[in-house]
Nucleic acid binder design. Structure first.
Lengths: 206, 206
DNA sequence: GTACGTCGGGACGCAACCGTACCGTCGCCG
DNA sequence: CGGCGACGGTACGGTTGCGTCCCGACGTAC
């Protein structure tokens, strides 16, 4: 019988170590040291560093969140933004999430796990919000959920997890309405307004 | 006299190694191996792994890009988005950028360097675009450059560097106009009365 | 009270890398 | 043509981590 308190201590230590040094430099010995635990206790539970991290992280990330219907798209968006903002402000999460996402770019297993526990969830949330808005007549039908998620999560993620600039008070409601406005922009005509290919070529030579 | 060809080979190897294993696991020996070079040649040029990476990366990232005036905000945005999209699609850059940004969250030196070579540049670009748009009457004055950057770069960065989902054809023009629309959403509370000084500051960034 | 299994701790051989030092070679500059 | 210096290569001692094994100490269930 593995003792649950020990397992919890290891889990906690992995999250802290992950935040402190990242996945790349995470070592089993450091985790054991931080948890006040023998290496044996870890190897008794997981077979490898990858397996351990994936199990622990996906357990945390896999929780689905309730999204109440506020009656307006921008209201729904504001709630979602608040949830995301709170998550991204968490000292551990704000370090671990970008780190693992970067690692996912080179490790298919991590990518698959995050895909499953994060992205699928997200996509459903996006589809839900849009579905409601379409039903209310706030948005035209036919919006791509992926595109919507880009607009909704992208700016906030950039601000909090990449630029790491603090958010002014009362910023989220503005962001919500401004995203709602952007989502309502209809798909473009076939011809782009400006021929820019040559300019781009000049700016970034091959 | 250090031989420039050797320096170039090392630079190239560092970028490749950075993309392959990330900063955390980057080792001098692996760089030397990949570059076909002795460790001596590396230590003769830089004192540490951090110093080496910072010098090489900031040299690449520090280039400022010309942003022609297309006559409309969405046109300007589309050019900027194309440039960013091309950069984020570059196989090396798309791995290195998220990795270093994640690392920056825990290493102040990396954060400072990236801040200087990337973010400052970006902020100026944002201020430039907005300034033009305000002059044309496309946007109300008083928009925060940081906020604008969030909306402009966030969705695309999320899509290409985080979610890593391919971009549908003709997506960027839509994204540009939809971002332009979002930027025009007035901030809650402070719509009309903006001091002239701020307008000038936004329109003509120093 | 006895037996079993987990516990922390320590030691193992192996591998990778650090940063330095010392080679003999080779190419450039004077 | 001679010398200086950067070159690749190799070896060094030291550190860190791997994954495994064994130990004596608990504690719990029976």
């Amino acid at each position: 019988m593995l003792r649950g308190e020990i397992t919890d201590a290891i889990r906690r230590a992995v999250m802290q170590e992950l935040a402190a040094v990242g996945y790349g430099r995470l070592s089993i010995e450091a985790v054991a040291r931080r948890a006040g635990v023998g290496k044996t206790a870890i190897y008794r539970r997981w077979n490898s560093k990858l397996e351990m991290v994936l199990e622990i992280v996906s357990r945390v990330a896999g929780q689905s969140l309730p999204l109440p219907d506020t009656g307006t798209l921008s209201g729904d968006l504001e709630i979602l933004l608040r949830i995301v903002a709170r998550a991204l402000r968490h000292p551990l999460a704000s370090q671990i999430i970008p780190d693992l996402l970067a690692e996912a770019a080179r490790n298919p297993q991590i990518a698959a796990t995050l895909q499953e526990s994060l992205r699928v969830n997200q996509r459903d949330v996006g589809a839900l919000l849009i579905g409601r808005a379409v039903d209310r007549g706030e948005l035209p039908p036919g919006i791509d959920p992926d595109t919507a998620i880009d607009l909704i999560v992208g700016p906030l993620y950039w601000r909090l997890a990449v630029a790491r600039t603090p958010l002014p008070d009362g910023h989220l409601p503005w962001m919500a309405t401004s995203i709602a406005t952007a989502l309502a922009v209809p798909a473009p005509g076939t011809v782009p307004a400006v021929p820019v290919d040559e300019i781009v070529d000049v700016a970034l030579p091959r």
